[in-house]
Amino acid sequence: MSTMLRINRDKCGYCGTCVAVCPEDALELIDAYLSLEGECIACGICARVCPLGALEVSNEE
């Protein structure tokens, strides 16, 4: 499991917008809890779209 994606749970509004744009289907919103379930390729799309800035990808270009 990759640790390249960091979820700031204090910021996250658990809205699922990141889930819909993830090209790898790696994210899952479980009730009120965003979870990295699949393989993150660190593309950074989820971090871009987040309305709150709750996601951080360590090696984003």
């Binding site: 819909a20 744009v21 289907d25 779209v49």
Partner: peptide, 24 residues
């Protein structure tokens, strides 16, 4: 919006970044 069930059944539901409105 997440549309994961159809995606896992083989349909492409991924929304392009430019076509996703980020809202508050």
């Amino acid at each position: 919006v997440e549309a994961q069930f159809a995606r896992r059944a083989g349909l492409d539901t991924t929304v392009p970044l430019r076509d996703m409105m980020s809202c508050a």
